[in-house]
Amino acid sequence: MELIMKQMPIVFNALNVGFLHTLQLFFITLIGALPLGLLIALGTMSRFKLLSLFNRIVIWIVRGSPLMIQLLIIYYFPGLVLHNPIWGGGETGRFWAASVAFIINYACYFAEIYRGGIQSIPNGQTEAGLVLGMTHRQIFFHVKLLQMIKAIVPPISNEIITLVKDTSLSRIIALQEIIWAGQSFLKGSQGISGAVWPLFFTAIYYLVWNGIMTVALGRLEKRLSYFK
């Protein structure tokens, strides 16, 4: 116990730094993947058969293969095959490579949710808008968008909760997120080695953050419950 008390300041400092990386990756992924997913979804529903086919293939590849492999490919492929290590070896490069992999991966999952959301809105809504002299743009923004958001909030919430935990996969390209930080004390770091508790303690960080996310997303869902 005394030993743990002595280790605590060092460990928490390292875990906080690691969790900061986790959160950065989390937010960057959302900022990138939420809009990109919409573009991909619109692409799959496009009248241009080639674009639609291309987007469907991308979704199939990205959702059908492990994110861990995607991380490895995106980070190592440029240097390994093209002889141009665009990301560099530093922490920043690793972070951006991980961000790109996560954004693409999650955008494809979001795309399928968006598509479901868009298609869940009856055609009658569009027709009602058209006969009232509204443009397709107005119909999208003033009629369909909010209904679509309401339809996708629950499935998107699920993905967001999963994303928080998935960020730990980025350690495969040595992005030093919180689990890496926790495990370093097991391997030996900053004079502490063989300490198991920091690794297990990382779970508390995830739990707290996912608690906050669950409450926030639940509120959003509730705010949209005024219509059916």
């Binding site: 009658g124 027709e127 009602a128 058209l130 006969v131 002299g133 443009t135 219509f227």
Partner: peptide
């Protein structure tokens, strides 16, 4: 925009109302 103008000569009430729920 022409099409919109022409549509406004007519109103249509649907069988299933198609009210905007929000």
């Amino acid at each position: 925009s022409e099409l919109r103008k022409k549509r406004l000569h007519f109103g249509l009430v649907f069988q299933s109302f198609n009210l905007f729920p929000q």
